[in-house]
Design a protein around this nucleic acid. Structure first.
Lengths: 141, 141
DNA sequence: ACTATACTTGACCAATTTAGTCAGGTATGT
DNA sequence: ACATACCTGACTAAATTGGTCAAGTATAGT
């Protein structure tokens, strides 16, 4: 079970954005250089972030991206959801009321995976961009 | 971030094994039929479980597998470790004392991923096979 | 001794996903 | 007009996944 780079990059880019968008919109080029992420790839990621209204875009020279909410209102869940980074532990194709994969009973580990998914998602729902920013400035001090 | 079927199958198979190995060794064929997992694939998985001494094998007719420890001594961590289902959130190739990927500073989200990894692993370290067995018999009642 | 059962090992493979690249656009401030 | 920077979609190489297939070896029962 691993995180995809799309999810990781999205969070890295947004932390970067949050640190610099107070003055001017931040161009993807800058983020690309600072975070070492390919510009083309960033464009894909930001188009998704924009679709989910996590960022706003400003076109033209001196344009770039800005957060469309406050850092404490942007949770990891929101970011991951935007870039299709989803937590998937259960695979049962067909789940009826009482059974998995058409069987009469729930598969023996079904509850376990549900529990795990909840456990992970709770983590993502609690953490906001602001938390990460704090953590980061503390480190520099 | 998703669980691979190797990890899922390993846990399912071991729960099955734990329920039936009190009387006789359990053959992979039986597990295969009960859990709907391909026999060939189960063989791969059990060879790993055996290597990590989670199960013992008995060859020949009436042979099969048996747990080599008590269910409460087998944690999810042990199972996942055996079948190479590892939790990987951080990707930084080179991490020196203070930096990632050769840079001077830790990447802004490094602590976050570490935290997430710990959060998930804690879950795996707490859960034992016994917990799953209990949960399962409760369900049938 | 023979045979059926069941573990053992390793090679192989198709499909999917991932992590991007590439090649064009379009909008806008100066 | 022109440079900057967003926008969009097609494409692809490499890795991973989720297996299958083939050819063993060990052992219990007859």
């Amino acid at each position: 079970m691993k995180l995809t780079s799309k999810g990781r990059y999205a969070v890295m880019a947004l932390v970067d954005l949050a640190r610099f968008d107070n003055i001017n919109p931040v161009s993807l080029r800058d983020i690309s250089l600072r975070q070492g992420i390919s510009l083309d790839y960033l464009e894909q990621i930001f188009s998704k972030l924009k679709k989910d209204q996590i960022v706003k875009s400003i076109r033209g020279t001196q344009g770039g991206y800005v957060l469309s909410k406050k850092p404490n209102e942007i949770k990891l869940t929101n970011i991951f959801h935007a870039v299709d980074e989803k937590v998937k532990t259960v695979q049962c194709k067909k789940e009826s009321k009482k059974g998995c994969n058409g069987k009469a009973t729930k598969c023996v580990t079904h509850n376990l995976w549900d529990e795990l998914e909840t456990h992970i998602n709770t983590f993502f729902e609690k953490k906001s961009l602001e938390d990460l920013l704090k953590n980061n400035t503390e480190q520099r001090a």
